Simulated scan of single mutants.
Amino acid sequence: LPSRPAIFFGRDDLVNTIIDSLIQQVDSHICVLGPGGVGKSSLVLAALHDPRISSIFDDQIFFVPCDAASDLSGLVSVMSSYFGLQGEQLQDRLISLFRHGDHRKLLVLDNFESPWENMARRGDVENFLSTLSGIPELAIIVTMRGAERPSGTLWSRPFLPMVAPYDRSSARDTFLAITDGDPHDPYLDTLLDYADDLPLAVTLIAATAQYEPTAELVHRWKSDGTALADHGKHRKNSLDISIRITLDSPRIARFPEALQVLSLLSLLPEGVELEDVRAFAPDVLKPEGAISILLGNALVFRVSSGRLKVLAPVRNFIERHHFPAPSAFQTLCSRYAEVAASASRIGFSGCGPLYRKLGMELGNIESLL
């Protein structure tokens, strides 16, 4: 089992939900969902290192990274290698291994989206997971990018909420734990705004802040953006690579209009209503389908007001690498020019809804300008 994250703040409610499920249900099945870089693996490890969990499972906790697998064959190969199995009938032998003995076991399949995303062979992966979930005394945790749970498995209730970015206090604590910086640094909150409190972004920007002044990082973000949070060629060391992995997923590739809509949403930091997408993206034949794909991949979120928003690091990456086509950008600007022009009606009777609409759109208008 990998070690507990050395720097881990907040999220007590999610950690306790995982622990309670594992304690109370002999065959607990937990799916941990969220965007790339939000800290799903760290969350699970924080829960697994709790003394209450180690006392139940002892040395029968198996943490298997799945990012090298692209289908069922790859998943079986990765799991077999983890358990030291070679030869024939590996899938059956894995199942037998988990059935053997009368002690509770816990299997963690980390980055399970890698084998599961292959649409042509997804059913095979789901059937295998379903078989594993039917083994008595075997608890299962899977971590996945996105917002969709695999079918065929009876997931424990209540479902674990999708993992969201840090609250600001935890983001500040994380940044300062890495940098040992000044908690009153006037540029700290600006950098955390750029990171949108996404744990991976906070961690990588803080790592850079160990040797570059925060004032310089604020200046560099305007030109380099997410590229300044690059400390290697792995998803855990590069914000750009982490975002690109999600964009390159088969779920996005099979619906090109999703990236087209995302390129427009990424210019609107205050988010939009779904009907606005229909208005400023008339060339998109299925805007609802595009939004559904983006929601399923955790590239877009619905906030409490119901508006659709994109995290700041993703917005920055998309603006630099996938800026909208000129015609699409002009249509978007024209739409918001109409919104801005409607301000001339403020002051007349019945303008309350208009006033509220403008209040929500000012940040978007400023972004486009």
Score class of each variant (00 low, 15 high):
S3H: 10
R4D: 09
I7E: 01
G10R: 10
Q24P: 00
Q24W: 09
Q25N: 13
V32H: 05
G37R: 02
S41D: 04
S42Q: 10
P51V: 10
F57M: 08
F57P: 04
F62C: 06
F63K: 04
A68M: 11
S70R: 13
D71A: 11
L75M: 12
S81H: 10
F83D: 07
L85I: 13
Q86G: 02
G87R: 09
L97V: 07
D102M: 13
K105E: 03
L106D: 02
D110I: 12
N111A: 15
M119N: 09
F128H: 00
G134P: 06
I140E: 05
M144S: 15
E148G: 04
T153R: 03
T153V: 15
S156G: 01
M162D: 12
D167R: 07
D167P: 09
I178D: 01
T208W: 11
E212H: 09
L217I: 09
V218C: 14
G225P: 00
T226I: 11
I241T: 10
I245T: 12
I252Y: 13
Q260F: 08
L267P: 03
L268Q: 01
E270V: 01
D276P: 06
S292A: 15
G296S: 06
G296L: 03
A298W: 06
V303C: 09
V303W: 04
V310K: 01
V314K: 10
F317T: 06
H322L: 02
P326F: 02
T331R: 10
T331M: 04
C333P: 00
A340D: 10
I346C: 03
G347D: 04
F348E: 13
G350W: 11
C351T: 15
L354I: 00
R356H: 14
E361I: 08
